[in-house]
Amino acid sequence: MEHNIFLIYIFLNQVCARLSQREARCNKWESLETRFGPAITTLQQEHPSIQSFKRFRLLKTMERFDGDIEKVTKFIQERETKRCHKDRDTSISRCQRREELKTKYASQLAQLATSGINVDRPWVLRVLKKHEGDVNKVIEMKSRCTERKAKFAELYTKYANQIAQLEAEDFSIKNKRILACLLEKSNGDIDVVKQFAQERQEKRLKRKECRHKHRNTSPTITTQEGNETGSTCRKRHDFSSDDLENLKKLRLAGVHGNPRRVLATFHECNDSIELTQTRMQEKKT
């Protein structure tokens, strides 16, 4: 009972957070619409190409440039030009690669076409490229897909009533393939499927709760000077400017390792880089 109350409490907190975020977005939308709405309407009438942009995006752009129409127009035109060039280059390169693969595997494509496989499907070229033109791999994949479709069609027919009942009850799992597999494992028992979905939801909530706790808490350490604590992942070493400069010189000379140990060895060698190199090599051997 207490566990169910705890789950309900978490769910209500999530709903409240989502509603507050939605309210904040709506308030921001209304404020931006009040400030820049008429200007954006005029801008869209003068520049029809801008009509393809979402209104909220235009409002945020207006806010960014403090309502300067010239800067907004220039910014949007630059973005549109870049996007057009990128799309054109991507489509050209994709078409070129596809034509190159068609030329390279022309004989294999002809063989597959005689076998009744639609060679215009993009996955055919991908499989041929992956398996270096092996036609048998394409045929095997096509046969597996056909068998899988036939299997799921059989399951849909077998458990049509159960799937319809779960859909009518607004079941949490919407994917028909997953429902068919679960019903097959449970021999068509709807209660078992519901129990599995409930356990799955509880596991997800527990994992989410654990992640939330892990992010908000971090292990602490106690320093030697007193009882002050600090995060182990945020522990920092304080070096003077001279130490940092010496470390840079040592790194350039090829001396690597723990910074404090390297500096201690460097000072033991009377601040000699050559002696430090020799000493560090001796320690490694």
Rank of each mutant, 00 (worst) to 15 (best):
H85D: 13
H85K: 12
I190D: 01
Q277T: 15
R98K: 14
K203M: 11
G230C: 08
K137C: 09
T276F: 02
I8G: 01
F239Y: 15
D271H: 11
R204V: 11
N175T: 02
G188D: 06
L128D: 05
D189G: 00
A164S: 12
E46D: 13
H3R: 11
T34H: 07
K249A: 13
V135Q: 06
E225W: 03
T73Q: 08
R55L: 07
Q51A: 07
F152H: 04
E184Y: 11
I76V: 15
H237L: 14
P38H: 03
T103F: 03
T265A: 09
E30K: 00
T81K: 04
D243F: 02
F75E: 10
S218W: 00
K82A: 07
N187R: 06
L32F: 04
S186G: 01
K86W: 07
K129N: 15
T285F: 09
G133N: 03
E209K: 11
K149Y: 05
I50S: 02
T81W: 04
F196K: 05
K283I: 14
F239N: 08
A197D: 13
I5A: 11
L182N: 14
A110N: 13
E167C: 01
G230M: 11
G226D: 13
E209I: 09
T73K: 04
Y9I: 02
L166H: 00
G226W: 02
T90R: 14
K149R: 12
P259S: 07
D271R: 07
L155I: 00
K71W: 01
A150C: 05
K208G: 09
S93T: 15
S143K: 10
L205E: 14
N227P: 04
T278C: 08
P219S: 06
Q224P: 14
L19D: 03
D68H: 13
L101A: 01
V124K: 00
N118L: 02
K86S: 12
D243M: 06
E100V: 12
Q21F: 05
V15W: 09
R88I: 10
R55E: 08
A17S: 14
H212D: 14
N246T: 13
R88V: 08
K28N: 06
G188T: 03
N175F: 00
I178Y: 07
L247N: 10
K137E: 15
E184D: 15
S272R: 09
S240I: 09
I139A: 10
